[in-house]
Simulated assay, not measured.
Amino acid sequence: MSKIDKETRIAWETEFLMHLVELSSSKSLELAIEEWKVYGFHHDEDGMPCICGCTTRTIAVMLVNRTNGARLEAGGCCMSRYPHLCGLALLNSFMKAKFSLDSILYVDALRFCLEEELIDKGLFEKYHSIGYEWKRERTVKQIGLIRLVNRIFLNTIRSRVPRGRSIDTIPIFKKTSPKSPGRCFH
């Protein structure tokens, strides 16, 4: 990476963090970051630049502040640099869940469902007892449970897409088969 690229990246990170702290209740960066969580995401058809300054935004990730309700829309560029916000993991889980609706529910999707109170602790525990890996010997009841939680997760994310936007046309994902979701995020 050239020196200019590093300087540009530092400038983008600084800009993103300034916006994040500015909209937070806490003015300390460490505490401000803890206030935010991913609310949803969508394909950015307009190609608007990200708040960090990156001009190649294709995914808009919507963040919500748990303390004051403030909202912030950032690009996938910011989410890849700040994995503690879980945007990248959640986006990956969404794309993989679309391809493997009946077989696997990814751990980030399951956590999201529990945090958002879309499922209760009992359903969370039932899913944990099934396990995460692909297993052909699952019962019809277990597959039904996985399908239910996957649908709740997918429908919730889709319901948060702003009017006039889309999520199923995100251009940076590989086409994968249902049995082998593979690595979806480039």
Rank of each mutant, 00 (worst) to 15 (best):
E30M: 15
I33E: 09
A60L: 06
V38S: 11
C54A: 13
T58L: 11
C77L: 00
D46R: 04
C50I: 09
E34D: 06
H42E: 10
H84E: 12
H84D: 13
A60Y: 01
G76V: 06
M62D: 11
P49T: 05
D46A: 10
M48K: 08
F41L: 03
A60K: 13
I51C: 06
T55Y: 00
E45H: 12
G53V: 08
G76H: 11
Y82F: 14
G47L: 05
G75T: 02
G75H: 02
V61Y: 02
H84T: 13
C78D: 11
H43C: 04
G69L: 03
R81V: 04
I51D: 06
G75F: 01
R71F: 03
T55V: 05
E34Y: 00
A60C: 10
P83S: 14
M62I: 09
E73Q: 07
A32N: 06
E45L: 03
L72V: 07
C78W: 03
A70D: 05
M79P: 01
G75V: 03
V64P: 04
M48F: 00
T67D: 12
E73K: 09
G40R: 02
L72F: 01
P49W: 01
S80V: 15
G53N: 07
C52M: 05
M79D: 08
C52D: 04
R81S: 10
K37A: 12
G53K: 14
T58N: 06
E30H: 12
K37L: 03
G75E: 11
P49C: 09
S80C: 09
R81N: 13
A32D: 04
